[in-house]
Design a protein around this nucleic acid. Structure first.
Length: 555
RNA sequence: GCGCCUGUAGCUCAGUUGGAUAGAGCAACGGACUUCUAAUCCGUAGGUCACAGGUUCGAAUCCUGUCAGGCGUACCA
């Protein structure tokens, strides 16, 4: 995207090329926005980075870069060399007005860019086993996966969202038995509930629901005959509940991929055969092994156990092969941090299947500590004592919940205090941002009432040139950074820059609003400021949309 | 034992591949509504970036070690 930053970058790049000559070094140009205005609009340390390559002192190199600058678009006011060799760029005011024009010309499209060049990628997330309702940790993964998909789409990738349902294997049998025993208990029988089964209250509810629907007809059946039904029934009901919860949370998948689908077409066996042909499979101690050590894993992994059953990992190999066969160039897997031990073997698997190392990118989401008033809330799925995502949503609300999840780095553990999330509500960051949006809407509402509305696209250079206070430039520059910020999110697969950016943008706007009248006595100035206000509103709205957080017109 | 993540203001957290004087929000204290939304704004205070070494022009950031917390180390899922 043609941001001011990118224009300046290529300008500098052109200036450096002659200096490099035969060295052939590829230089990454970094541009900082300095904290102090005296250091210019942008600052770069390239000259210092080049000292080792060029074996000259940094200030000399900086001077060389300056004299090579061909500022054909006339962006630059002046360039200074400072300190040990920083280049400080001071831009002409006119250089910035294009930002406002871009936003006004294409409000929803501002921020969209072609970083991904249309590459088909998949974001797989949540993928919680259908053995119980989603809890808050799943919620964090859901928010992150969903927003990453939004960001990647915005940055030019062709993204598909997928939920992998682990609906095969013995945990499902355990689930079916759990329901079966609850069913008999709910019918008044005195049967003992087995160890290590799903004893949550939701299983009792499910049993009562089943009785309401099917009556007592399974009571005297042979367990072996009816268990498949119970398993299926429980799995489906719970999955339906998960879908409902995600729907309320604003998370929607393009595809729900069932593990059974893999087994149905014998994919696991075929995948293992494929790997065996490539020499990555061997037999030992009665089991079948995958040679993951060939790719740096610490030990080889069993794919088929001595008892003949395939492991979860074997299914995952087949699943990832399936993803690539469907044409995805890469997959982003969002996992809970408790699965981190799994990354190496999965990476090994992907490479053994003939794919590049980076065709699988794993985003590890650290666990959530749920607190209530500073006191940890115990969480255990099998024990059944936990707060569900649904309950959190009912109590805290979707916007605040999402915003809190998204305001932390993914690999940083998160304390989620229900009381804080609620009680804070008035100075909760999410409301701070939403309030700014509502306030902006209100300005335009009043402008309409006073007949001050006009077609923003008609605002010419002489109008925008009225925006020249330091506060106004600060805002415009920040608006100009929006696409670069999004690109950073996409590259690092970290959504949290967006909430921080939003807070900063909106904070500057609130301050500006306080000090200046948008709708003032001077019609020309009013028009100019309405352009700025519109730009701020659009960017705020776009960013909130990516976060899946609402942008209210009124508060 | 080994591996991964984390340790930054009283609390919750940012700090994008090493950059100039370490940031924000809560909480605390003091101010600002006759105006387009005060769910806002302005100011004050708050730091041994866990600790100790090292690398260099320059380290919260990179390397080594120590300490503390979390997670993982299955022919479980």
């Amino acid at each position: 995207m043609n941001t001011v930053r990118n224009c300046l970058k290529s300008l500098i790049g052109e200036a450096i090329r002659p200096l490099l000559k035969d060295s052939g070094a590829e230089i990454n140009i970094e541009l900082d926005i300095p904290k102090v205005a005296a250091h210019g609009d942008y600052a770069s340390n390239v000259a210092m980075g080049l000292t080792r390559v060029l074996k000259r002192n940094p200030r000399e190199i900086a001077q060389g870069i300056i004299s090579n600058l061909r500022d054909s678009d006339s962006l630059l006011e002046k360039v200074e060399i400072a300190g040990p060799g920083f280049l400080n760029f001071f831009l002409k005011p006119e250089a910035w007005y294009g930002v406002i024009r871009d936003i006004i010309a294409n409000p929803e499209g501002y921020g969209k860019q072609d970083l991904g060049k249309g590459a088909r990628i998949q974001v797989e997330f949540v993928s919680a086993n259908p053995t119980g309702p989603l809890h808050i940790g799943h919620g964090r993964g859901a928010a992150i996966g969903d927003v990453l998909a939004n960001i990647l789409t915005e940055c030019g990738y062709d993204v598909q969202r997928e939920y992998y349902i682990n609906d095969a294997g013995n945990q499902m049998d355990t689930l079916g038995r759990s329901l079966y025993f609850r069913y008999r208990q709910e019918l008044g029988e005195d049967v003992e509930f087995p160890e290590n089964h799903y004893r949550g209250e939701y299983m009792r509810e499910l049993a009562r629901e089943l009785i309401g629907r099917e009556g007592k007809r399974f009571r005297n059946s042979e367990p072996a005959e009816v268990l498949p039904f119970f398993t299926d029934y429980a799995g489906r009901s719970i999955l339906d509940g998960i879908k409902d919860d995600l729907d309320i949370f604003g998370v929607h998948f393009d595809r729900w991929f069932s593990e059974r689908e893999l087994h149905g077409v014998d994919s696991v066996r075929k995948t293992l055969e494929h790997l065996r042909e490539r020499g990555f499979i061997y037999d030992s101690e009665g089991a079948v092994w995958f040679r993951s050590t060939s790719f740096g894993d610490e030990k080889d992994r069993v794919v088929i156990r001595a008892n003949g059953a395939s492991t979860y990992f074997a299914a995952d190999l087949a699943y990832h092969l399936n993803k690539f066969e469907r044409g995805f160039q890469a997959t982003v897997d969002v996992w809970g941090a408790d699965h981190h031990g799994y990354i190496e073997r999965m990476r090994a698997g992907v490479q053994a299947l003939g794919r590049g190392k980076d065709d699988l990118r794993v985003v590890l989401v650290q666990l959530v500590n749920l607190l209530r008033g500073g006191v940890p809330v115990a969480m255990s799925t099998r024990g059944g004592e936990f707060v569900t995502l649904r309950e959190v949503l009912d109590e805290v609300g979707r916007d605040a919940t999402r915003f809190i999840f998204l305001t932390r780095r993914t690999d940083s553990p998160l304390d989620f205090d229900l009381e804080v999330a609620k009680a804070q509500s008035n100075d909760n960051p999410v409301f701070y941002v939403q309030y700014a949006h509502a306030r902006l809407c209100s300005i335009f509402e009043v402008a309409r009432e006073r007949g001050l509305e006009f077609d923003l696209a008609t605002a010419g250079a002489e109008t925008l040139a009225l925006l020249r206070s330091p506060q106004e430039f600060e805002l415009i520059k920040l608006l100009g950074e929006y696409p670069d910020m999004l690109a950073d999110c996409a590259r690092s697969l970290e959504p949290h820059y967006i909430p921080y950016y939003l807070h900063q943008l909106v904070s500057q706007f609130h301050s500006y609003y306080h000090d200046n009248r948008i709708l003032g006595d001077d019609p020309a100035l009013t028009r100019a400021r309405l352009c700025l206000a519109a730009a701020v509103r659009n960017v705020t709205r776009n960013a909130l949309r990516l976060l899946g957080v609402s942008a209210p017109q009124k508060m």
